[in-house]
């Protein structure tokens, strides 16, 4: 070993992996090779590290357990991580009108739910990471569009059509506000989300009924 501050063995050792992997700048390769040619311990170390690297590369891959994929799928389903597309396809006016008429005639199931006079939360604040959050945003977008169309036409509609529509919309809005508030408060259960999706759908169908009736 040289008597100055440099320690060629330590310097070479620090470069050995880079040298073995071909990552060493060409200017340094000659210095490493020259040292290895004159230093048996460093040459042995280089041989050992090279053998180790080759042995690691030959390690056989473990077999993927055949049942594991099914287990993962089942768990994902049980935790409702699959974002099944719950948005129903936009129906033709006849279908939408029929569905909405059934709703109006039979009355909404959720009328029995306790009303809550608290103001609806700001929808832009609902940034909840939930499998149905995407569907919620799309419903909100669709409803905003439909409401804009309906708001201009509803005052012109005859009272016998306008009043039941307004009454149903008010109830649906209340149900939506209740559930959005629960979600925003972090207290939602899976049922909260399911119900919210269904109420959104009811409102879409109701607005679609009004627009299709107006077109007729």
């Amino acid at each position: 070993m040289r008597s100055d501050d440099r320690n060629p063995c330590a310097e070479t050792e620090a470069r050995l992996s880079h040298w073995l992997d071909g990552d060493l700048p060409s200017a340094e390769v000659a210095a490493v090779q020259a040292h290895l040619a004159s230093c048996a311990p460093c040459a042995n170390l280089a041989a050992e590290l090279g053998a180790l690297r080759d042995a690691l590369a030959r390690l056989p891959a473990a077999e993927f357990p055949p049942a594991l994929a099914d287990r993962i799928r089942q768990r994902a389903e049980s935790e409702r991580l699959f974002r099944r597309d719950r948005r129903r396809r936009p129906g033709r006016p006849v279908w939408a009108a029929a569905a909405a008429l059934i709703l109006l005639a039979a009355g909404l199931t959720w009328r029995a739910l306790p009303p809550d006079a608290a103001p609806a939360p700001d929808r832009t604040q609902l940034t909840i990471d939930h499998p149905l959050a995407d569907a919620q945003q799309e419903y909100q977008y669709a409803l905003a569009f439909l409401e804009a169309q309906v708001s201009g036409l509803l005052p012109l509609a005859p009272a016998e059509l306008r009043q039941p529509i307004q009454s149903e919309m008010a109830q649906l809005d209340q149900l939506i506000a209740d559930r959005e508030r629960i979600i925003a408060g972090g207290r939602a259960t899976p049922q909260t989300w399911e119900t919210l999706m269904d109420v959104y759908q009811c409102k879409v169908e109701l607005l679609a009924l009004f627009l299709s009736a107006d077109e007729g």
């Binding site: 390690l59 891959a61 473990a62 993927f64 357990p65 594991l68 994929a69 287990r71 993962i72 768990r75 994902a76 935790e79 991580l81 699959f82």
Partner: peptide, 30 residues
Amino acid sequence: GPRIFNLARRMSGNPATAEDLTQEVFLLLL
């Protein structure tokens, strides 16, 4: 799946732990 299972198997050294970790990773990915 096989790549993640292999990594988990070698990181853990235990097949059962590797299966659990692989499952956790895929649920996290979802």
